[in-house]
Protein backbone atom coordinates (compact mmCIF):
# COMPACT_ATOMS: atom_id res chain seq x y z
CA UNK A 1 0.00 0.00 0.00
CA UNK A 2 2.63 2.53 1.12
CA UNK A 3 4.91 1.20 -1.58
CA UNK A 4 2.24 1.85 -4.19
CA UNK A 5 1.75 5.43 -2.99
CA UNK A 6 5.50 6.11 -2.98
CA UNK A 7 5.91 4.58 -6.42
CA UNK A 8 3.14 6.69 -7.94
CA UNK A 9 4.35 9.87 -6.24
CA UNK A 10 7.88 9.20 -7.42
CA UNK A 11 6.69 8.65 -10.98
CA UNK A 12 4.74 11.91 -10.84
CA UNK A 13 7.83 13.80 -9.68
CA UNK A 14 9.86 12.27 -12.48
CA UNK A 15 7.18 13.29 -14.96
CA UNK A 16 7.31 16.85 -13.64
CA UNK A 17 11.08 17.04 -14.06
CA UNK A 18 10.83 15.68 -17.59
CA UNK A 19 8.09 18.19 -18.34
CA UNK A 20 10.23 21.04 -17.02
CA UNK A 21 13.12 19.93 -19.22
CA UNK A 22 10.81 19.70 -22.21
CA UNK A 23 9.42 23.19 -21.59
CA UNK A 24 12.92 24.59 -21.23
CA UNK A 25 14.05 22.96 -24.45
CA UNK A 26 10.97 24.04 -26.34
CA UNK A 27 11.27 27.69 -25.30
CA UNK A 28 15.01 28.26 -25.04
CA UNK A 29 17.23 25.86 -26.85
CA UNK A 30 15.35 25.70 -30.11
CA UNK A 31 16.57 28.31 -32.62
CA UNK A 32 16.39 31.77 -31.06
CA UNK A 33 17.20 32.25 -27.38
CA UNK A 34 15.22 34.22 -24.82
CA UNK A 35 16.67 37.48 -26.05
CA UNK A 36 16.08 36.78 -29.75
CA UNK A 37 12.52 35.87 -28.96
CA UNK A 38 11.98 38.83 -26.66
CA UNK A 39 13.14 41.36 -29.23
CA UNK A 40 11.27 42.01 -32.41
CA UNK A 41 13.07 41.68 -35.77
CA UNK A 42 13.18 45.46 -36.08
CA UNK A 43 14.82 45.92 -32.70
CA UNK A 44 17.44 43.29 -33.47
CA UNK A 45 18.28 44.80 -36.85
CA UNK A 46 18.86 48.23 -35.27
CA UNK A 47 21.03 46.95 -32.46
CA UNK A 48 24.82 46.81 -32.94
CA UNK A 49 26.12 43.24 -32.63
CA UNK A 50 28.41 44.18 -29.77
CA UNK A 51 25.54 45.46 -27.68
CA UNK A 52 23.54 42.35 -28.48
CA UNK A 53 26.42 40.16 -27.34
CA UNK A 54 26.80 42.22 -24.18
CA UNK A 55 23.12 41.84 -23.35
CA UNK A 56 23.34 38.12 -23.96
CA UNK A 57 26.30 37.92 -21.63
CA UNK A 58 24.46 39.86 -18.92
CA UNK A 59 21.50 37.55 -19.25
CA UNK A 60 23.78 34.52 -19.15
CA UNK A 61 22.53 33.36 -22.52
CA UNK A 62 26.03 32.72 -23.81
CA UNK A 63 26.56 29.92 -21.34
CA UNK A 64 26.08 26.29 -22.48
CA UNK A 65 22.51 24.97 -22.60
CA UNK A 66 22.97 22.33 -19.90
CA UNK A 67 24.16 24.97 -17.41
CA UNK A 68 21.13 27.11 -18.06
CA UNK A 69 18.87 24.03 -17.86
CA UNK A 70 20.30 23.18 -14.45
CA UNK A 71 19.73 26.74 -13.32
CA UNK A 72 16.15 26.63 -14.64
CA UNK A 73 15.40 23.36 -12.85
CA UNK A 74 16.91 24.55 -9.58
CA UNK A 75 14.95 27.78 -9.86
CA UNK A 76 11.75 25.89 -10.61
CA UNK A 77 12.29 23.70 -7.57
CA UNK A 78 12.55 26.87 -5.42
CA UNK A 79 9.65 28.51 -7.31
CA UNK A 80 12.07 31.20 -8.45
CA UNK A 81 11.80 31.88 -12.16
CA UNK A 82 14.03 34.96 -12.35
CA UNK A 83 13.12 38.24 -14.01
CA UNK A 84 11.73 39.12 -17.41
CA UNK A 85 14.26 39.91 -20.09
CA UNK A 86 13.11 43.41 -20.97
CA UNK A 87 11.32 44.91 -17.96
CA UNK A 88 13.35 43.09 -15.28
CA UNK A 89 10.22 42.46 -13.24
CA UNK A 90 10.15 39.37 -11.04
CA UNK A 91 8.26 36.66 -12.95
CA UNK A 92 6.69 35.34 -9.76
CA UNK A 93 5.18 38.75 -9.06
CA UNK A 94 3.71 38.97 -12.54
CA UNK A 95 2.12 35.54 -12.30
CA UNK A 96 0.97 35.49 -8.67
CA UNK A 97 -2.35 37.33 -8.89
CA UNK A 98 -3.50 35.84 -12.22
CA UNK A 99 -2.65 32.43 -10.77
CA UNK A 100 -4.75 33.09 -7.69
CA UNK A 101 -7.61 34.36 -9.86
CA UNK A 102 -7.58 31.32 -12.13
CA UNK A 103 -7.45 28.92 -9.21
CA UNK A 104 -10.36 30.84 -7.71
CA UNK A 105 -12.36 30.45 -10.90
CA UNK A 106 -11.50 26.74 -11.27
CA UNK A 107 -12.18 26.06 -7.59
CA UNK A 108 -15.58 27.74 -7.75
CA UNK A 109 -16.45 25.72 -10.83
CA UNK A 110 -15.47 22.47 -9.14
CA UNK A 111 -17.39 23.29 -5.96
CA UNK A 112 -20.53 23.96 -8.00
CA UNK A 113 -20.15 21.38 -10.78
CA UNK A 114 -19.15 18.26 -8.83
CA UNK A 115 -22.14 17.96 -6.52
CA UNK A 116 -24.57 19.01 -9.23
CA UNK A 117 -23.29 16.49 -11.73
CA UNK A 118 -23.24 13.78 -9.07
CA UNK A 119 -26.91 14.44 -8.40
CA UNK A 120 -27.84 14.64 -12.07
CA UNK A 121 -25.87 11.53 -12.98
CA UNK A 122 -27.37 9.48 -10.17
CA UNK A 123 -30.89 10.76 -10.88
CA UNK A 124 -30.59 9.93 -14.57
CA UNK A 125 -29.23 6.44 -13.88
CA UNK A 126 -31.97 5.69 -11.34
CA UNK A 127 -34.55 6.71 -13.94
CA UNK A 128 -32.74 4.89 -16.74
CA UNK A 129 -34.48 5.33 -20.11
CA UNK A 130 -37.28 7.35 -18.56
CA UNK A 131 -38.04 11.04 -19.24
CA UNK A 132 -35.65 12.36 -16.55
CA UNK A 133 -32.82 10.31 -18.01
CA UNK A 134 -33.56 11.39 -21.57
CA UNK A 135 -33.68 15.03 -20.52
CA UNK A 136 -30.38 14.81 -18.63
CA UNK A 137 -28.65 12.86 -21.40
CA UNK A 138 -29.75 15.19 -24.17
CA UNK A 139 -28.90 18.23 -22.08
CA UNK A 140 -25.48 16.79 -21.29
CA UNK A 141 -24.68 16.10 -24.93
CA UNK A 142 -25.67 19.63 -25.92
CA UNK A 143 -23.78 21.23 -23.01
CA UNK A 144 -20.73 19.13 -23.77
CA UNK A 145 -20.63 19.67 -27.51
CA UNK A 146 -21.16 23.44 -27.59
CA UNK A 147 -17.76 25.17 -27.29
CA UNK A 148 -17.13 27.52 -24.37
CA UNK A 149 -16.84 30.68 -26.46
CA UNK A 150 -20.31 30.03 -27.88
CA UNK A 151 -21.85 29.33 -24.47
CA UNK A 152 -20.12 32.42 -23.11
CA UNK A 153 -21.33 34.65 -25.92
CA UNK A 154 -24.88 33.34 -25.62
CA UNK A 155 -24.86 33.97 -21.88
CA UNK A 156 -23.57 37.50 -22.43
CA UNK A 157 -26.29 38.16 -25.00
CA UNK A 158 -28.99 36.84 -22.72
CA UNK A 159 -27.99 38.09 -19.29
CA UNK A 160 -25.89 41.12 -20.07
CA UNK A 161 -27.39 42.59 -23.23
CA UNK A 162 -31.03 41.47 -23.53
CA UNK A 163 -31.61 41.33 -19.79
CA UNK A 164 -28.80 43.26 -18.13
CA UNK A 165 -28.45 41.31 -14.91
CA UNK A 166 -24.70 40.86 -14.93
CA UNK A 167 -21.79 42.75 -16.46
CA UNK A 168 -20.70 41.51 -19.87
CA UNK A 169 -17.01 41.85 -19.12
CA UNK A 170 -15.29 41.83 -15.81
CA UNK A 171 -14.45 45.21 -14.42
CA UNK A 172 -12.67 44.07 -11.28
CA UNK A 173 -8.91 44.49 -11.34
CA UNK A 174 -6.32 41.78 -11.02
CA UNK A 175 -5.50 42.36 -7.37
CA UNK A 176 -9.05 42.81 -6.04
CA UNK A 177 -10.10 40.57 -3.14
CA UNK A 178 -11.41 37.14 -4.11
CA UNK A 179 -15.07 37.82 -3.36
CA UNK A 180 -15.13 41.08 -5.34
CA UNK A 181 -13.67 39.24 -8.27
CA UNK A 182 -16.16 36.37 -8.06
CA UNK A 183 -19.10 38.73 -7.69
CA UNK A 184 -18.04 40.36 -10.92
CA UNK A 185 -17.71 37.08 -12.79
CA UNK A 186 -20.97 35.10 -12.54
CA UNK A 187 -21.26 34.63 -16.31
CA UNK A 188 -17.68 33.38 -16.62
CA UNK A 189 -18.28 30.87 -13.84
CA UNK A 190 -21.59 29.80 -15.39
CA UNK A 191 -19.97 29.21 -18.77
CA UNK A 192 -17.41 26.76 -17.43
CA UNK A 193 -19.87 25.20 -15.00
CA UNK A 194 -22.26 24.33 -17.84
CA UNK A 195 -19.57 22.52 -19.83
CA UNK A 196 -18.20 20.78 -16.74
CA UNK A 197 -21.56 19.57 -15.50
CA UNK A 198 -22.40 18.25 -18.95
CA UNK A 199 -19.18 16.23 -19.15
CA UNK A 200 -19.11 14.95 -15.57
CA UNK A 201 -22.79 14.01 -15.66
CA UNK A 202 -22.23 11.92 -18.76
CA UNK A 203 -19.39 9.99 -17.12
CA UNK A 204 -21.25 9.46 -13.87
CA UNK A 205 -24.50 8.47 -15.52
CA UNK A 206 -22.81 5.74 -17.54
CA UNK A 207 -20.92 4.54 -14.46
CA UNK A 208 -24.10 4.46 -12.38
CA UNK A 209 -26.13 2.67 -15.05
CA UNK A 210 -23.43 0.01 -15.16
CA UNK A 211 -23.16 -0.20 -11.38
CA UNK A 212 -26.93 -0.51 -10.98
CA UNK A 213 -27.05 -3.47 -13.34
CA UNK A 214 -24.42 -5.49 -11.47
CA UNK A 215 -25.14 -8.76 -9.72
CA UNK A 216 -24.46 -7.30 -6.31
CA UNK A 217 -27.12 -4.64 -6.76
CA UNK A 218 -29.60 -7.31 -7.81
CA UNK A 219 -28.72 -9.37 -4.76
CA UNK A 220 -29.20 -6.35 -2.48
CA UNK A 221 -32.57 -5.60 -4.05
CA UNK A 222 -33.62 -9.20 -3.58
CA UNK A 223 -32.58 -8.93 0.06
CA UNK A 224 -34.90 -5.96 0.47
CA UNK A 225 -32.19 -3.43 1.32
CA UNK A 226 -33.66 0.09 0.91
CA UNK A 227 -33.02 1.51 -2.54
CA UNK A 228 -31.29 4.67 -1.26
CA UNK A 229 -28.72 2.55 0.57
CA UNK A 230 -28.11 0.49 -2.56
CA UNK A 231 -27.65 3.60 -4.68
CA UNK A 232 -25.53 5.68 -2.30
CA UNK A 233 -23.48 3.09 -0.43
CA UNK A 234 -23.03 0.33 -2.99
CA UNK A 235 -23.56 1.62 -6.53
CA UNK A 236 -22.22 5.17 -6.22
CA UNK A 237 -18.68 4.24 -5.09
CA UNK A 238 -18.64 1.54 -7.77
CA UNK A 239 -19.55 4.22 -10.33
CA UNK A 240 -17.14 6.86 -9.04
CA UNK A 241 -14.06 4.64 -8.87
CA UNK A 242 -13.76 4.02 -12.62
CA UNK A 243 -14.82 7.63 -13.34
CA UNK A 244 -12.00 9.20 -11.33
CA UNK A 245 -9.38 8.91 -14.04
CA UNK A 246 -11.72 10.43 -16.60
CA UNK A 247 -12.51 13.24 -14.16
CA UNK A 248 -8.83 14.01 -13.66
CA UNK A 249 -8.38 14.15 -17.42
CA UNK A 250 -11.33 16.48 -17.61
CA UNK A 251 -9.93 18.84 -15.02
CA UNK A 252 -6.83 18.98 -17.21
CA UNK A 253 -8.91 19.86 -20.23
CA UNK A 254 -10.56 22.58 -18.14
CA UNK A 255 -7.22 24.37 -17.91
CA UNK A 256 -7.35 25.11 -21.62
CA UNK A 257 -11.07 25.88 -21.39
CA UNK A 258 -10.20 28.54 -18.83
CA UNK A 259 -7.95 30.38 -21.28
CA UNK A 260 -10.85 30.77 -23.72
CA UNK A 261 -13.36 31.85 -21.10
CA UNK A 262 -10.97 34.33 -19.50
CA UNK A 263 -10.49 35.94 -22.89
CA UNK A 264 -14.22 36.05 -23.65
CA UNK A 265 -15.00 37.75 -20.34
CA UNK A 266 -11.71 39.60 -19.86
CA UNK A 267 -11.21 37.76 -16.57
CA UNK A 268 -7.80 38.67 -15.11
CA UNK A 269 -6.46 35.12 -14.81
CA UNK A 270 -3.58 33.02 -16.09
CA UNK A 271 -5.19 32.65 -19.50
CA UNK A 272 -5.15 36.37 -20.10
CA UNK A 273 -1.67 36.62 -18.67
CA UNK A 274 -0.51 33.86 -21.02
CA UNK A 275 -1.85 35.66 -24.06
CA UNK A 276 -0.28 38.92 -22.87
CA UNK A 277 3.06 37.24 -22.20
CA UNK A 278 3.09 35.60 -25.61
CA UNK A 279 2.36 38.85 -27.43
CA UNK A 280 4.98 40.70 -25.38
CA UNK A 281 7.44 37.84 -25.80
CA UNK A 282 8.08 37.35 -22.11
CA UNK A 283 9.57 33.89 -22.40
CA UNK A 284 9.95 33.31 -18.69
CA UNK A 285 6.30 34.05 -17.96
CA UNK A 286 5.22 31.63 -20.70
CA UNK A 287 7.52 29.02 -19.18
CA UNK A 288 5.98 29.38 -15.74
CA UNK A 289 2.44 29.19 -17.00
CA UNK A 290 3.23 26.16 -19.16
CA UNK A 291 4.98 24.48 -16.26
CA UNK A 292 2.10 25.26 -13.95
CA UNK A 293 -0.63 23.90 -16.19
CA UNK A 294 1.41 20.78 -16.85
CA UNK A 295 1.84 20.31 -13.09
CA UNK A 296 -1.91 20.63 -12.59
CA UNK A 297 -2.45 17.72 -14.97
CA UNK A 298 0.19 15.59 -13.29
CA UNK A 299 -1.00 16.39 -9.78
CA UNK A 300 -4.64 15.71 -10.59
CA UNK A 301 -3.79 12.38 -12.16
CA UNK A 302 -1.77 11.48 -9.10
CA UNK A 303 -4.72 12.49 -6.92
CA UNK A 304 -7.06 10.30 -8.98
CA UNK A 305 -4.68 7.33 -8.68
CA UNK A 306 -4.41 7.78 -4.93
CA UNK A 307 -8.16 8.08 -4.53
CA UNK A 308 -8.69 4.89 -6.52
CA UNK A 309 -6.18 3.20 -4.22
CA UNK A 310 -8.13 4.45 -1.23
CA UNK A 311 -11.57 3.50 -2.55
CA UNK A 312 -11.02 0.26 -4.47
CA UNK A 313 -9.63 -2.49 -2.25
CA UNK A 314 -8.82 -4.64 -5.28
CA UNK A 315 -6.06 -2.27 -6.32
CA UNK A 316 -4.31 -2.65 -2.97
CA UNK A 317 -1.91 -5.47 -2.46
CA UNK A 318 -1.47 -6.88 0.96
Amino acid sequence: MIGAILRRTGLSLLTLVLLAIYIFLATEVLPGDALDVSLSADEISQMPPAQLAKMKHELGLDRPAYERLGEFLLGAARLDFGRTVMTKARVVDIVAYPLRNSLLLAGTVIVIAFPLSLMLGVAAACRYRRPVDTLVSVGAIIGYSVPEFVTGTVLVMLFAVAWPLFPATITASTSDPALVLLAAAPLAVATIVIGSIAYLTRILRVGMVEALSTDFVERLRLTGIPEWRIVLLHALPAAVIPSLTAMALYAAAMVSGLVVVELVFAYPGLGQELVRAVTRREVHVVQVIALFSASVVVVLNLAADLMILALDPRTRRR
Binding site: T214, D215, F216, E218, R219, L222, T223, A238, D312
Partner: peptide, 19 residues
Protein backbone atom coordinates in the same frame (compact mmCIF):
# COMPACT_ATOMS: atom_id res chain seq x y z
CA UNK B 1 -37.73 -10.15 0.14
CA UNK B 2 -34.93 -11.07 2.45
CA UNK B 3 -37.30 -11.70 5.35
CA UNK B 4 -39.45 -14.56 4.07
CA UNK B 5 -37.69 -15.47 0.84
CA UNK B 6 -33.96 -15.07 0.34
CA UNK B 7 -31.90 -15.51 -2.78
CA UNK B 8 -28.45 -16.98 -3.32
CA UNK B 9 -27.36 -15.95 -6.81
CA UNK B 10 -25.05 -17.74 -9.18
CA UNK B 11 -21.77 -15.88 -9.13
CA UNK B 12 -20.54 -15.31 -5.59
CA UNK B 13 -17.80 -12.87 -6.60
CA UNK B 14 -19.95 -10.43 -8.52
CA UNK B 15 -22.80 -10.81 -6.04
CA UNK B 16 -20.85 -9.14 -3.26
CA UNK B 17 -20.09 -5.42 -3.37
CA UNK B 18 -16.38 -5.36 -4.09
CA UNK B 19 -15.60 -2.21 -2.13
Amino acid sequence: RGLKVAMVPQNPLSSLTYH
